[in-house]
């Protein structure tokens, strides 16, 4: 479980997040949704400690993460897997070396154990026979899968995904969403997913937090999102013409 209490974050004079308080439960897909520029990425990066926050608390289960020193944070980070918007695979390493990287860095596994683990993770995300390819030789969807494999290679307790299906075609996007949901349930991870894609919201939105201009405006589930009286959320949900028509028709 991850809890954020009264988080504030600004860059210089520009306030990006204001007084965010939210809880993310394990074993379900927690979604942070909002328009581009609303502060989703900054929130996620603040939670993992890539940004220093101005004030507030970030709890990983019963550890107050934002007050830890570098070494303390490092311990928690071993339990974090993160999927970045552009996949962020290491260009100079092959698929296999990318997934192996955390194992090389942080475990004392033998070569065979590492190879087994790499192949297990790659198989879990349906990447077969691509071990020796470089990221530049992969399609967008494959890159995301490899990035997921790398993120789960150390069996993390926490999984963060920043726009996991941006830049993918709708079908691949759904496959990636489902893969993340399955993995989350399988390992009972606390998973937080940033998205602005309503397809994802309706498909895997077990818990949804809506951010607008740095403020948390609404939280609920996909079953509740279509019938809210939060107007900014309605604008977001019914942004496209078809959805609007459906809403007025019903």
């Amino acid at each position: 479980m991850i809890r954020v209490n009264n988080l504030n974050k600004s860059f210089g004079d520009a306030r990006v997040l204001t007084d965010i308080t939210v809880t993310f439960e394990p074993g379900i897909t927690n979604l942070i949704i909002g328009r581009s520029g609303s502060g989703k990425t900054v929130l996620l990066k603040s939670i993992v400690g890539l940004h220093d926050i101005d004030s507030g608390e970030i709890w990983y289960d019963d550890v107050l993460f934002n007050k830890l020193d570098f070494e303390g944070k490092k311990k928690i980070r071993r339990e974090i897997g993160m999927l970045f918007q552009g996949s962020a695979l290491f260009d100079s390493l092959t698929v296999e070396q990318n997934v192996r990287f955390p194992l090389d860095m942080f475990t004392e596994m033998t070569q065979e154990e590492k190879i087994d683990r790499v192949n297990f993770c790659l198989k879990r995300v349906n990447i077969i026979n691509a071990n020796k390819l470089f990221p530049s030789e992969l399609s967008g969807g494959m890159k995301k899968r490899v990035a997921i494999a790398r993120a789960i290679s150390l069996n993390p307790k926490y999984l963060f995904c920043d726009e996991p299906n941006s830049g993918l075609d709708p079908i691949t996007a759904i496959l990636i969403d489902e893969l993340i949901k399955e993995i989350t349930e399988e390992y009972q991870m606390t998973t937080i997913i940033n998205t602005h894609d309503m397809n994802s919201v309706m498909k895997i939105g077990e818990k949804i937090v809506f951010i607008h201009e740095g403020l948390k405006c609404w939280e609920g589930s996909k079953n509740e999102i279509l019938n809210t009286d939060c107007s900014t959320l309605n604008d977001f949900v019914f942004a496209n013409a078809l959805a609007k028509k459906l809403k007025s028709g019903s």
Partner: peptide
């Protein structure tokens, strides 16, 4: 700019 450095940092490297 491709967040590979962020990826290293989140891993604790």
């Amino acid at each position: 700019v491709t967040e590979q450095i962020d990826a290293l940092e989140t891993m604790g490297v």
